[in-house]
Every structure is written in structure tokens, then in C-alpha cells.
Design a protein around this nucleic acid. Structure first.
Length: 567
RNA sequence: GACUCGGUAGCUCAGCAGGAUAGAGCAACGGCCUUCUAAGCCGUCGGUCGGGGGUUCGAAUCCCUUCCGAGUCGCCA
């Protein structure tokens, strides 16, 4: 509502100023930093500059224009403060407008910006035969949440888990397995054992680099379907995926496709041929490259031995997705360290003459660091996500035993709180920032955390209970005190927040907003008694807090968190 | 070395299409449970917005420069 008022007011005033001074003037209509100054603010310095009139005169003109606005029924006061014109809203009229908007909406916050558009999101994408680490959590929860947010905005979303189930790493693992592996150990504890082999390989390669060459040979034969290697590969893939599914179940994450890199194995010749036909391919030091000029290093398409590389597979995947889903945008939720790769990918697509290179977006995120350095599987330093999730659930159960020992289904709720805490902790900060791994922070349940949001929703549920709410007997006067008014204003921002989260491809925008909403509610809660004698007052208050709960729950759902009624 | 991203309170971070006294949470300290869940609320303490220049009526926000951290830079993904 306020966004609408601001936008229209801006146009209205710009138009009238234009008529008056016959000069094009652009003004800013914003939210003042300090709410005491008002609800809407218009700095007039830019107007002074273009029309070259004294500031007080311009301020007066703008004040008159605001007062004459179509929206003046929403204004209770128009003040001039130095170079600003500040507007105070009429709390009753504004409250009524916001509440009505909620009442008339099927799904509050929804926006039709995405109608008819398809968006493909590539996320999670763990590497087979490697543990699902805290590093993969980021891609998984960011991608999942973005998918939910896009769906809320009426996009059609295709969720793809592009499994890292191919590549030279398999040459390495198979080499190590054949020389040092033990079938029983592998079957007993698949991923752990395969990681050991992978780490061992890298240790050995440091002393004897010739085994790198052997691994490459094995991979090449795997690509050419050597049955012995294919069989091993299938086995490794199967046992790994089984373990990943456990984690996805815990996180409540689902995908439309699990086609990984191997799926594109037979789709790459076509790419190489097309690049060749378009005269983009160049032989260089025995390998085939696409020269990308001065701006980027060349893209390596084919190795000296003829086997393919990451970017070749990504190209094949991209074209497959374009043909299959006809997307309007494709998002790759992949870490910062692959920035160059995606820049090169876009550049190659551009050179191939496809205009939709513009629709490729690398949704980069910060690395999970340990002691200020990137975590690396090669060095065997890895923290398994499942351990962290279990730890958080355990701690959450301890909390419940301390705070609310009589609670039913304690274990189940503890899991929902613990896992949601981990998810929220990951999403609350802007995705591209690096984060230092810190279990203590991740399982902290006090302050700006997942449990804080859940707790706030639970408090509301506890009041709402099974009270009936009559939407027709609302007295808007109960929404005018400061505590209520902050809630009304924040409720009003929900849709805008979702659009911002979408525009930035960052769930943190939503996460921060939910914290603000919850915080305003908790202040309200400490000040206002809801279950009062007066039925109109009680009803009005119940309705207001039910809206707050609706947004909290909807927002948490979009972030991929669990909604609970008691804790 | 080149390129990219970051540097805001002791710690974790918002704010950055320029706007009015720079905001939260954690930690520390002090209050608030005979009233709807105290995983909460209220308050105190805490900042040369890395340093230096510049553009502007106005800079944490834009430009230049410098220092610090991270990532990437041809046969891994």
C-alpha cells in the first residue's frame, strides 16, 4: 500500500512540477530514517537545483502539491523540516487499507510478476563419492528457498540437482580403489571409504605425479564405457545418492531432476561439433579451446586426450535445459570460486550466437571457511552436514527439556527447531559473503535466529488457540497505537520484500524482514493484552496477530523452515 | 603479478540506484514472570563506517589511491 502511495505520489508531483516550471524534474519519495520524522519523506534539494528558486519557496510548493494529492485522505500531516517535506500517515485510513488488502487476498504477498515465466534452478549438486558437507548446505538451502520465492511470485520453477557424478575424480577414485580399496570396507561405509581413497590418491600424487595421468586414462575409458569401470561407477553413484537422500529428507528439499553430469555424456559431441562448425574451436598445446579474447582466459573444451571438461558438460546441460524447459532464466547456485567458470560459460554461449546468454545467472555464494581458509575434500578436512543437523536437534531437545518439559512429541519438535535453526542461520546473511564455520553460532537459539521466529509464531498460536475471528467486526482504532502501527506498516511491506528478495536472488532479504516483523510483534506482545473482555477489541487484536502469524509462517515456509504450533 | 569479492560496535551482520542524530543481534551490565509460552521484553555500555584524497548543498553509500583478508587465473569440478 505505502509503496503504491509513494510511487503514485512521485509521478503526481513530478508531473505537476513539470507543468509549473516546464522543466523535467525527478524527485525521490522515500521512507525517513527516523520514524519520528514521519512515514514518507521528500527531499527537495534536487528541485531547488533545477528550478533555481530559494529553498523555502520550493518547500512550500511541494507541500501544497502533496496536500492536493489524490491520496491526501491517507495523510494526516504534511510537515516541512529544513529541505524535506515529511508526511505523516492517517493511521486509521492506512490501517484499514492494509487490513483490507490482506482480507481480500487469497495468498497475501503473492505477485504476478512471474506469470507465464519459467525459471530453472540448478542447486545442491553434490559430488558423488564425497560426503554431504556443510559447504553443500549453502547451495541446497539457498536454491531451495529461491525456488519457493519464485513460485510465490507465480513463476514456474524447475529444480535440478545436477549431481557431480562424472569427471576425472572418478578416474582418481577408481585408480585408488583398484590399488588400495577393500570392497567390504566400501560397502560397509561407502562415502567415508571413498573419501579416504580420494584423499590417499592426492597424497600419492604429490610424490608421484604420473598417477594423475593414469587417473585421466581411467576416466577416458569410463567415458567410452569400459564395463568394469562403468560397474564401479554405478555402484559408487548409487550408494552416495542413497546417503544424500537422507539429508534431503531431513531438510525437506526436493528436486524435479537428478540428472547429473553423466547424463550429458552422450550429448557433448554435438556441442564440440557445433563449436567447430561455428569456427570457434582452436587447437592450443594439444587441447581444444575457445578463445575469449583479452577479457577472459580461454575456455578449455577438450583435453589433449580428447576427453571433455566441466564447461563442455555445462554447455550440453544448458542447451538441453533450454530445449526441454524453454526457460526464461536459468540460475546456478554455485560458490564464489566458480565465478570465472560461469563468466566463461556465458561468453561462449554469446559467441555461439545465442541471445539467451543474458538469462544465465550465477547465483554465487560465499565459501564456508575454516580458520580463514577454504575447506577442501582433497585434504580430508570436511564437516558432515548430517552431524551438524543431529547436533542441533540434540541441543534443541535439551532446550525443550529445560523450558517446556511437558511438551508432547518433544523429539519431533526438537528436530524441526534444530534443523530450521541451521537453515535460517545460513540464509540470514547475504549469500555472497564468506562465512566462518562456527557450530556455536549455528546452534545458537537466542536473538536473530530460526527459533526466535518459530517461538514468535508459537506465541501467537498459543493466543489464537481456536478462537473464532470475525473479520467484519474490526475497530481500526485498535491499530493506531505505536506498537500496532509498526506491525501494520511491516505487514504492508511483505510483498515488496518478496520482490526485493527475488530481484537480489537473496533469501536473506526475506529472513531479515521476518526478524523485524517478529521483533515488532514481541514488543507488541509485551505491551498489549489480546484476550481482553471487550469483544470488539479482542476480535480486532486477534485478527491483527493472526495476520502476523500468517506472514511469519509463510515466510518461514519460503525459507525452507518448519512451521510448528508449540515448542 | 592480474582480475573479482569483502573490510561498518569486542564478535556476527543490516544499511550502499547519495540525504536528516549510522542500526540490529550476541557478549557485558541493570531491570521485567499472581496476566495470552521469559527461546521473550525494556534499558545502559559500545562506532575516526580500514587509511588518505576527490565529486557534491549533502558520502558508510559514487570516483581515485593505498593497506589488509579471501577467491580465481589452461588440461579438477
Amino acid at each position: 500500500m505505502i509503496e503504491l502511495i509513494k510511487n503514485k505520489l512521485k509521478l503526481e508531483i513530478e508531473e505537476k512540477l513539470h507543468a509549473k516550471f516546464s522543466e523535467k524534474i525527478s524527485i525521490v519519495v522515500e521512507k525517513p530514517k527516523n520514524p519520528k520524522l514521519g512515514d514518507i519523506s521528500i527531499p527537495v534539494f534536487s528541485v531547488v537545483k533545477t528550478v533555481r528558486r530559494p529553498l523555502p519557496e520550493v518547500v512550500d510548493i511541494v507541500v501544497e502539491l502533496v496536500k492536493a494529492s489524490k491520496y491526501q485522505k491517507y495523510f494526516s500531516e504534511v510537515k516541512k523540516v529544513s529541505g524535506f517535506v515529511n508526511i505523516v500517515l492517517n493511521r486509521i485510513e492506512f490501517g484499514k487499507a492494509v487490513i483490507n488488502e490482506f482480507s481480500n487476498s487469497e495468498d497475501f504477498g503473492r505477485n504476478d510478476i512471474g506469470v507465464g515465466k519459467t525459471i530453472v534452478i540448478d542447486y545442491s549438486s553434490p559430488n558423488i563419492a564425497k560426503p554431504f558437507s556443510v559447504g553443500h548446505l549453502r547451495s541446497t538451502v539457498i536454491g531451495h528457498s529461491l525456488g519457493n520465492i519464485f513460485e510465490k511470485l507465480n513463476y514456474k520453477v524447475v529444480r535440478i540437482n545436477h549431481l557431480g557424478d562424472f569427471g576425472t575424480q572418478f578416474g582418481k577414485i577408481i585408480y585408488a580403489y583398484l590399488n588400495y580399496g577393500d570392497i567390504e570396507k566400501v560397502n560397509k561405509n561407502p562415502i567415508d571409504e571413498l573419501v579416504k581413497l580420494y584423499v590417499k590418491f592426492h597424497k600419492l600424487a604429490k610424490e608421484d605425479s604420473s598417477i594423475e595421468e593414469k587417473a585421466r586414462e581411467i576416466f577416458k575409458e569410463l567415458e567410452q564405457k569400459n564395463p568394469k569401470y562403468v560397474k564401479l561407477w554405478e555402484h559408487f553413484r548409487e550408494v552416495s545418492l542413497k546417503q544424500y537422500m537422507k539429508v534431503y529428507d531431513m531438510l525437506n528439499v526436493k528436486f524435479d531432476s537428478y540428472d547429473g553430469e553423466a547424463f550429458y555424456n552422450d550429448k557433448m559431441d554435438k556441442i564440440v561439433k557445433e563449436l567447430h562448425d561455428k569456427d570457434l574451436l582452436k587447437k592450443d598445446q594439444g587441447a581444444m579451446i575457445v578463445d575469449l579474447g583479452d577479457e577472459f582466459p580461454p575456455a578449455l573444451i577438450q583435453k589433449r586426450d580428447g576427453s571433455t571438461l566441466y564447461i563442455t558438460r555445462d554447455l550440453a546441460a544448458l542447451f538441453y535445459r533450454k530445449n526441454t524447459y524453454d526457460f526464461d532464466e536459468v540460475l546456478y547456485v554455485v560458490g564464489n570460486e566458480q565465478k570465472l567458470h560461469f563468466a566463461q560459460l556465458k561468453e561462449v554461449v554469446k559467441k555461439m550466437g545465442y541471445d539467451y546468454y543474458k538469462d544465465i545467472h550465477h547465483i554465487n555464494f560465499g565459501l564456508v571457511m575454516q580458520n580463514g581458509k577454504k575447506m577442501s575434500t582433497r585434504e580430508g578436512k570436511i564437516i558432515k552436514l548430517i552431524d551438524v543437523l543431529n547436533e542441533a536437534s540434540k541441543l534443541s531437545l535439551e532446550y525443550i527439556n529445560e523450558k517446556n518439559p511437558q511438551l508432547e512429541n518433544k523429539e519431533e519438535i526438537a528436530k524441526k527447531v534444530g534443523i530450521s535453526a541451521i537453515i535460517f542461520n545460513d540464509l540470514k546473511n547475504y549469500r555472497a559473503n564468506d562465512i566462518e564455520f562456527n557450530l556455536k553460532d549455528m546452534v545458537n537459539f537466542v536473538g536473530q535466529t530460526g527459533p526466535y521466529l518459530q517461538y514468535t509464531s508459537v506465541r501467537i498460536s498459543s493466543i489464537l488457540h481456536d478462537n473464532q475471528i470475525d473479520e467484519d467486526s474490526i475497530d481500526y482504532n485498535y491499530y493506531t497505537n505505536d506498537y500496532s502501527y509498526e506491525l501494520i506498516k511491516t505487514i504492508d511491506e511483505y510483498e515488496e520484500v518478496l520482490l526485493k528478495a527475488k530481484a537480489d536472488y537473496s533469501p536473506s532479504v526475506l529472513a531479515k524482514y521476518l526478524l523485524t516483523l517478529a521483533s515488532y510483534f514481541n514488543s507488541y506482545y509485551s505491551q498489549e493484552k489480546v484476550m481482553v473482555e471487550d469483544l470488539i477489541e479482542r476480535n480486532s487484536k486477534l485478527y491483527l496477530i493472526s495476520i502476523v502469524r500468517y506472514i511469519l509462517d509463510d515466510g518461514m515456509r519460503l525459507l525452507g523452515m518448519q512451521i510448528i504450533k508449540k515448542m
